[in-house]
């Protein structure tokens, strides 16, 4: 398989209603790294991934992947939305949700293949949720729900993985599983982008950081991004965190 190309974001500007949410973002995301997107509330972190995927209209700018536009190659993307955006009382089992990762590849009017069922089973095994496959999703804990979503993303066999706030309301076991699999995906040459807002210890799990506050403050290796100056520009100097600052 050819190596995964980079994602290039070129002069991306996005409005949310009438307010500018992102201004003139330029960055390149390389495969093989776990990339964290950080910034204060309302910095446009989720907006950045949604705009990159074409899930919301952009004012200007272009997001390319390899030769073409990323939004036209969504079959290579696995996107995990914020858990709070989902109605977890929906009548579905763990298995139903993981199989959703196979819908696009299965194609219209086709039934799920044995390969799809095997991929879903392996994905559930990998996140430690196989024994829960017949449980209603509403009967799971927050962390278990997040792992089911991770399994769905794995079952998609994507090259690019986007996770929106995957660590909100999850237990430590789930956090460990998530970081382990992010590293494995990156090691296998995928692009892994994770929206996060927690500046605690867990920041050391990210190889590269993107620091946002409506505009791009900094992007690159962790030590280069986490400078006092950058943090002040992103968080306005009100943040007490400087423990990991170089």
């Amino acid at each position: 398989m050819a190596p995964t190309p980079c994602i290039t974001v070129d002069h991306l500007t996005v409005n949310y209603r009438d307010v500018q949410a992102l201004r003139n973002i330029r960055l390149t995301v390389q495969p093989g790294k776990v990339v964290g997107i950080f910034g204060p509330n309302g910095a446009g972190k989720s907006t950045l991934i949604k705009a990159m995927l074409g899930l919301m209209p952009v004012v200007t700018g272009r997001v390319s992947y390899g030769e073409g536009t990323l939004a036209r190659q969504l079959d290579r993307v696995a996107y995990v939305p914020q858990r709070s955006q989902i109605d977890w009382t929906f009548p579905a089992t763990v298995w139903d949700v993981v199989m959703m990762g196979r819908v696009k590849k299965t194609g219209w009017f086709n039934r799920f293949s044995a390969v799809s069922r095997r991929l879903a089973t392996e994905a559930l095994e990998r996140v430690g949720m196989l024994e829960f496959r017949d449980r209603p999703i509403g009967a799971l804990s927050g962390g278990q729900q997040q792992r089911v979503f991770l399994a769905r993303a794995l079952a998609q066999q994507a090259e690019i993985f986007f996770f929106d706030e995957p660590f909100v309301g999850v237990d430590q076991k789930t956090e460990a599983v998530l970081f382990k699999i992010f590293q494995e995906l990156a090691a296998a040459g995928s692009i892994v982008m994770v929206v996060n807002h927690d500046l605690g210890e867990s920041i050391t799990h990210f190889d590269q950081l993107i620091l946002l506050n409506k505009e791009l403050i900094a992007a690159g290796p962790r030590d280069r991004v986490l400078t006092r100056d950058n943090m002040t520009r992103a968080y306005g100097g009100h943040v007490g965190f400087f423990g990991h600052v170089a």
């Binding site: 949604k50 899930l55 079959d75 989902i86 109605d87 199989m99 959703m100 696009k104």
Partner: peptide, 22 residues
């Protein structure tokens, strides 16, 4: 019957369905 799996995905997680290219 024909659109069951797509409609299930869409009605559960519209954003996820859109991001998968549906």
């Amino acid at each position: 019957a024909l659109l069951y799996k797509e409609l299930l995905f869409y009605s559960f997680d519209p954003l996820g369905a859109q991001a998968s290219g549906l």
